[in-house]
Simulated scan of single mutants.
Amino acid sequence: MGFSTTLWEWYGQDEHKRVLAVCEAIPALQFLALPADSQRNAIPYCPACEAWSEMMLPLNEVLSICGSAMPAEIRTRLQATWELCNNLTGAAFHCDDWFIFDHNDWTPIRTAAEELSGLMELLEITPFLDDVLLDCRNAVRGIKR
């Protein structure tokens, strides 16, 4: 059973917080897997601030919310990716430098994010992402479907 099946099971069991956490991490993983130029072009303001709040914190959120419910291999790799993000050096991660993504410290993050994307079967999930995000956000906020 692949991870996309696990996600759909959670969705069918109304585990909306878990599904929402995973779905919010998907664009983050996709961003972290991009080449430096693409990352730079995807960030509207301070690269470090935007990357941290929008692209790295969702990884920790998944770990916090889904925890041991995730398959061990995915949880372990997600934790390792989160640690890589947390351990970026000052040279590779500081405010107002549009070229932080060119630093070599980002290479293992890109590799880890790419591997996670495959393990989590993001190609199978992404076509449904917008609808699932909307549904889960509404459910978590108590808005009737």
Rank of each mutant, 00 (worst) to 15 (best):
W52V: 04
C66T: 09
M55S: 12
T111D: 12
P47W: 02
E115R: 13
L84N: 02
N87H: 11
C85R: 02
M70W: 10
L84Q: 04
E61S: 14
I65M: 10
L59S: 03
C66Q: 04
T76C: 12
D105K: 04
L84F: 02
W98Q: 07
W52F: 15
C95W: 00
P47K: 02
C95V: 00
S117R: 08
A91E: 01
C66P: 04
C85Y: 05
S64K: 15
L88R: 06
N87C: 12
S64W: 14
S68H: 11
E115M: 11
L78G: 13
N86T: 11
S53F: 10
G67D: 10
L78S: 12
I100W: 00
T81Q: 06
E114R: 14
A48L: 00
C49G: 13
L88W: 08
M56L: 11
P47D: 04
R75V: 10
C49K: 08
F101H: 03
M55Q: 11
P47T: 02
P58M: 07
P71M: 07
T107S: 12
A51T: 15
T81R: 02
E114M: 11
E83F: 09
G90K: 04
C49S: 14
V62L: 10
N60E: 14
R75K: 15
L78H: 12
A92W: 00
A80Y: 04
Q79T: 13
T76I: 13
P71Q: 06
S68I: 09
D102G: 04
L88I: 11
G90H: 05
C66F: 05
A51S: 15
I100K: 00
E61T: 13
L84M: 07
C66K: 02
R77K: 14
P47E: 04
A80W: 03
N86R: 14
L84A: 03
C66I: 08
D97I: 00
D105C: 08
N104H: 14
S68A: 09
Q79C: 08
E54P: 03
A112T: 06
T107V: 14
F93V: 00
